[in-house]
């Protein structure tokens, strides 16, 4: 009885119902597609215009570039400064951010947790120029004694060579401001993955007699590792590209190993400080430096996404 009731499947496939092509549909889908393609064009435009405007730097006589020894020797101290400031920020922000994320996801009382998460997100909403202003006028004088102490007691380490700057406007201070700025990014992403830990894993660990920390170490952290790493990398990307905090806080200068004296500069801050008054080849040089920054942040961000996509396939959540 059942076999006669169902029509043979070949018959159904022979006449697929085709929707009538309406002009409204065509216009709408076409315009949506154009918008998508426009994004690709914009990005291609960003790359094309930057390369086009940067090219004169590479063809010009090395003695005409700022510093007189070609583009490479101009840009490497800036790359060093950019990476140094970002690394300081990362070293300070990562443990704090993980602590805050754990606090919100596993330690704080449930009713408080959401509000606390919002408080940390508030930090992300504050414009970078305000952080710059805060860094130069409030933070720099506050931390200056600490840097002087470091220079006095740990001065044998090249990074802490004294004498410490009297104004406190150093790479360390700039790195601290950057740390405050990337703190909410790392916190937000780690918090999300910590909250997604399967409850069964946590309860199983607790039922076996684990303390709360052992439960976190055995269930939460392994599960959240890709999220933590991608959060750190995204924070690094932000710290590398952040301009105003460094441009305002740091008292810029030539290359030096010491993070406690004035000197060094980052690519982004160099552009912000010099571009408005630049002309001719200097403009091209700055744009070429911007291109270098673009490539660095691109690599960092790609790496972050790659880690996430690589691990998402066999994560415990699905």
């Amino acid at each position: 009885m059942t076999t006669t009731a169902t029509p043979p499947p070949t018959e159904r496939r022979s006449a697929p119902p085709r929707a009538k092509a309406r002009p409204g549909d065509r216009i709408f889908s076409r315009s949506a597609q154009v918008a998508g393609i426009l994004i690709l064009i914009i990005l291609a435009g960003v790359a094309a215009f930057l390369v086009r405007e940067a090219l004169p730097t590479f063809t010009a006589d090395p003695s005409e570039i700022d510093g007189g020894e070609g583009f490479l020797s101009y840009v490497w101290p800036l790359v060093f400064g950019t990476v140094a400031a970002a690394l300081i920020a990362l070293v300070v922000a990562t443990p704090l951010a993980l602590g805050i994320a754990l606090f919100i996801s596993h330690f704080a009382p449930r009713r408080l947790a959401q509000g606390l998460g919002y408080v940390v997100d508030l930090l992300a909403a504050i414009p970078s120029v305000v952080f710059g202003l805060w860094g130069i006028q409030w933070l720099a004088p506050q931390v200056q004694p600490a840097w002087a102490w470091l220079a006095d007691n740990l001065g044998f380490i090249p990074l802490f060579t004294g004498p410490a700057s009297a104004t406190g406007r150093t790479m360390m201070t700039a790195g601290l401001v950057l740390a405050v700025m990337i703190l909410p990014i790392i916190t937000a992403i780690s918090r999300e993955v910590f909250l997604q830990t399967p409850t069964l894993h946590e309860e199983a660990a607790l039922a076996l007699g684990a303390t709360r920390w052992e439960m976190i170490r055995m269930a939460v952290l392994p599960f959240g590792r890709p999220g933590i790493i991608s959060g750190i990398m995204l924070g690094l990307g932000r710290a590398l590209g952040e301009t105003m905090a460094v441009a305002m806080v740091l008292s810029t200068g030539g290359f030096t190993w010491s993070m406690l004296t004035s000197g060094n500069n980052t690519i982004a801050a160099e552009i912000a400080l010099d571009f408005p008054e630049s002309s001719g080849l200097k403009t091209n040089t700055l744009i070429a430096a911007g291109l270098v920054l673009f490539v660095i942040t691109l690599a960092v961000n790609m790496f972050a996404r790659w880690i996430v996509s690589r691990r998402s396939e066999f994560s415990g959540a699905n």
Binding site: G45, L50, E53, A268, F294
Partner: peptide, 25 residues
């Protein structure tokens, strides 16, 4: 498009500014 939107989120703001400056130049 998904991929390049991801790339765009990572563009440093100063680079976006340089792009507009270069375009208008």
């Amino acid at each position: 498009i998904t991929f390049f939107v991801d790339v765009m989120t990572g563009i440093p703001s100063i680079v976006a500014g340089l792009f507009a400056a270069a375009l208008f130049a």
